[in-house]
Structure formats: C-alpha cells, structure tokens
Amino acid sequence: MNEVVKILVIEKSYIIREGLKALLSQMGLAFRMDEADCIKDSFQKLLEKYEPQVVIANQLQLSEKWHGNRNSTAFTGLIIIGIVHSIPDENQTSHFDFTLNVMNSKSALTNDFQDIFVKIGLVSEENDSETISEREADVLRLVALGLTNNEIAERLFISVHTVMTHRKNITRKLGIKTVSGLTVYAILNKLVESGELKGGRKE
C-alpha cells in the first residue's frame, strides 16, 4: 500500500521521461523515479546503484547493453518494461515482461500501466477500504494493551507468525503503523477503555 515503489527509467528522450513521470503520477501509486539517459556501463551496475523494483527502458538501450540471461538471479523479482515506438517484433522484446508503446494515446497508455501494475500486484483492483476482521480486532486490542507478539500469540492460541500477519493487515487496512497510533484507534473505536491501558509500553 503505502510503500514507495522504486522505478528506474532508462531513456534518452527527456520528453518521454517527463511524459512517463506525468503518467505514473496519475496512477495512484507512491513511487520514486530515478532516471538514466542511457546505460553507460552495464545494466547490472545501474541496478545495483538504484535498486529498482521496476525498470522502464528504451528497447534499443537495453538490447545493446544487455549482458546475461533474463533468468539469472540478478534479475529475480525485477519487472522490466520495454519502451517501444511501434508494434514490436517478438524477438527483440523477449527479455521484457511488458512493453509500452509510447506512440499510443494517453488513455491507452494509462490503461496499459494500470494493467501492468495490477498484474504485478502494485495496484490492487479492489479498493483498500475493507474494515478489519473480528480476529484482527482481537489482535489490535491486545496490541493496544501493550502485549508483545509472543504474548498475543499465547493469549489467542495462534502462532507468532499469524500474529504478525494480522498486524501487517491491520496496518495496511487502517493506514496506522505505530503502536501508539493503533492505541489511539483502539480507544476511539472502543476496542479498549483508556482506563485499561497501563501506559507502560511505548515504542
């Protein structure tokens, strides 16, 4: 949800880079975009420098300086989107996960981006407004009371791992990260009485 996605754009054209930035900023995605004119040295070095999750690269730039195998571990988890200017030849774009035709209209490009981001799980199709489940409310209550993950697991007869999953989901749904923030939420929603709080544990 609120994590910033690191995107690296490798494209010589300033106008295309700015255009991509403008499009991306309309996607409802928190992102940071780094830019490179071209691949000076090797693609791997650029990856090490910027550590992107998504690379959007000019098709020509990447084919020339492409060293190594798309399946190699250096590219694990990396999404590579190729910038093309026409309907591409399959052979030239096999190392891309997706292609983006920059000659397309704004609405077509927006749709393409949307599709890509949904497919790779960066944007979710359903909205994020789901409320917390009863079990999550139980966990939240105990978090607010100052219990540790271990104590919560013991109390609810679940594994610590499950507690952590619940906490992750609570934070994602509510948009509240800190224990004191969750405590305020719990009091406002009457999951706990402020009298119950020991006021001991602070992060």
Binding site: N2, I176, T178, G181
Partner: peptide, 16 residues
C-alpha cells in the same frame, strides 16, 4: 515519520 503518518489517518478517517 510513521507517527506523523498515523496522525494524519487518525484525523482523516477515525476521529468521531
């Protein structure tokens, strides 16, 4: 940063 982030959501979403 996290606390400020939380405060925003508390005010926007959860204040009665």
């Amino acid at each position: 940063e996290s606390k400020l982030f939380d405060l925003k959501n508390i005010l926007i979403k959860y204040i009665p």
